[in-house]
C-alpha cells in the first residue's frame, strides 16, 4: 500500500473508492465525447446517403498511406498507454515511465504525420475554396467533414499529449504517486481518442476505395 495515502484526496475516505470514482467520472465524460463524435458521424452519414457518388469520388482523393500508417501508430500508442497505466497501478515505476513516454512519442508522431498529410492535401487543393480540385459540388461537403473530423480529432490528440505529458512529468519528478487514479483516467481518455480514429479511418480513407 505504499504511496496510497499521498494519492488520496478530498472528499474520499479510501483510495479504492477514489479510483472507482475517477474511472467512473471518466467513463461519463467519454459518454459525452461519444455523442460529440457520434453526432458528427451521423451528419456525415446523412450527407453520404444524399451524395453517394460525390462522396465516393472525394474519398478516393484522401491519402490512404498516411492514414494507414497513422492508424498503426495510434493503435500502438494505445498499447503502450495501457502498459504504462497498468504498470503505474502496480507501482512498477520504470515500466510505467517507459510506457507513458512511448505513448507521448507515438502521439507526437501521429500529429507530425497528420501535419504532412494536411500539407499535401492543401497542395492538392483539397481544402474547399476557390481552386478546389474536384468538380462535384458535394465533394466539398465531404472535404468539409474531412477537415472538421480530422481537426477535431487532432485537437483531442493535442489535449491528450498535454495531459499525458503532464502526468508523466509529475510521475518522473515524484510529485504524483504512482497509485494515483489519474493514470487510469488518462488512459481511458486516450483509448477513446484511439477508438474515434478507428471509426474515422474507414469513413474517410476506405469509403472511396471499396
Amino acid at each position: 500500500m505504499s504511496g496510497g495515502q499521498e494519492a488520496l484526496r478530498e472528499p474520499w475516505d479510501s483510495l479504492r473508492r477514489q479510483r472507482e470514482a475517477a474511472s467512473f467520472g471518466t467513463w461519463l465524460f467519454l459518454g459525452s465525447e461519444a455523442l460529440l463524435f457520434g453526432g458528427l458521424m451521423m451528419a456525415f452519414a446523412v450527407n453520404r446517403v444524399l451524395h453517394g457518388d460525390a462522396f465516393a469520388a472525394a474519398g478516393h482523393e484522401t491519402n490512404v498511406v498516411y492514414g494507414t500508417v497513422n492508424t498503426l501508430v495510434l493503435l500502438t500508442s494505445s498499447l503502450t498507454m495501457a502498459v504504462g497505466a497498468e504498470a503505474a497501478r502496480a507501482e512498477l515505476r520504470k515500466l510505467a515511465l517507459v510506457g507513458l513516454s512511448l505513448t507521448l512519442v507515438f502521439a507526437l508522431a501521429f500529429l507530425i504525420i497528420k501535419g504532412f498529410e494536411w500539407r499535401d492535401d492543401f497542395r492538392q487543393h483539397l481544402f474547399p475554396g476557390p481552386n478546389f480540385k474536384l468538380q462535384e459540388s458535394a465533394a466539398r461537403i465531404f472535404f468539409a467533414f474531412y477537415w472538421v473530423m480530422t481537426g477535431l480529432h487532432g485537437l483531442h490528440v493535442t489535449g491528450g499529449i498535454a495531459v499525458i505529458g503532464w502526468i508523466t512529468w509529475q510521475a518522473w519528478t515524484g510529485q504524483r504517486a504512482l497509485r494515483s487514479p489519474a493514470f487510469e483516467a488518462v488512459a481511458l481518455y486516450w483509448h477513446l481518442v484511439d477508438i474515434v480514429w478507428v471509426f474515422l479511418y474507414p469513413l474517410l480513407y476506405l469509403g472511396g476505395r471499396a
Binding site: H51, S137, R140, I141, V148
Partner: peptide, 8 residues
Amino acid sequence: PIFDPAYG
C-alpha cells in the same frame, strides 16, 4: 460548406 445548400 457543411450546411451550404449551394453545394448540396
